[in-house]
C-alpha cells in the first residue's frame, strides 16, 4: 500500500468507527449514522482496492473507475449543496421567528403585552 492509501484507509476507518459509535450512543439519527458508515466503508474499500471501481465501472459501460467516481461526484455534490442550502434557509426562517418573538415580547406602547395573548403560535412558520 502506498502512503496515501494508508492515510486515507486509516482516516476512513476512524470515521467509520465514529459513525458506529454515534449509532450506538444515539448521538445522531439511525439513518444518518448508517449513511455515513456506508460512505466511509465504501471510500476505504475503493482506496484500498482501486481496481474494484474499474470492475464496477465496466458494468455500467464506463472504461475507467476514476471516471465512474467523477460522474458520481458530479451528480451527488450539487444535491449535497442543495440540501445544505435548504437547511440553511430553514435555519434562517427559524432565526427570524425567534427574532420576531423577541421583538413582539419587548414591544413598547399602550397594551403591548402580546406574549400573554392566546394567539401565540409559530406553527405557520414551519418550525421543527
Amino acid at each position: 500500500m502506498s502512503p496515501f492509501q494508508i492515510l486515507v484507509v486509516t482516516l476512513s476507518g476512524c470515521l467509520f468507527t465514529g459513525s458506529l459509535i454515534a449509532f450506538a450512543k444515539g448521538w445522531a439519527s439511525r439513518r444518518e449514522c448508517l449513511v455515513w458508515a456506508t460512505i466511509w466503508l465504501t471510500a476505504g474499500i475503493f482506496v484500498m482496492w482501486p481496481e474494484l471501481t474499474t470492475v464496477i465501472a465496466k458494468r455500467f459501460g464506463i472504461q475507467r473507475g476514476a471516471d465512474l467516481i467523477l460522474y458520481c461526484a458530479v451528480i451527488t455534490m450539487p444535491i449535497g449543496f442543495l440540501m445544505i442550502y435548504a437547511r440553511l434557509r430553514a435555519l434562517r426562517r427559524e432565526l427570524t421567528v425567534l427574532v420576531r418573538r423577541l421583538a413582539i415580547a419587548d414591544a413598547t406602547g399602550p397594551g403591548a403585552s402580546p406574549l400573554a395573548t392566546p394567539s401565540e403560535d409559530n406553527s405557520a412558520h414551519g418550525t421543527e
Binding site: 427574532v99 423577541l102 421583538a103 413582539i104 414591544a107 413598547t108 403591548a112
Partner: peptide, 10 residues
C-alpha cells in the same frame, strides 16, 4: 405609538 425592535437585521 408602538415600537418593536429586531435584535438583528432580518
Amino acid at each position: 405609538t408602538y415600537a418593536l425592535g429586531h435584535i438583528i437585521n432580518r
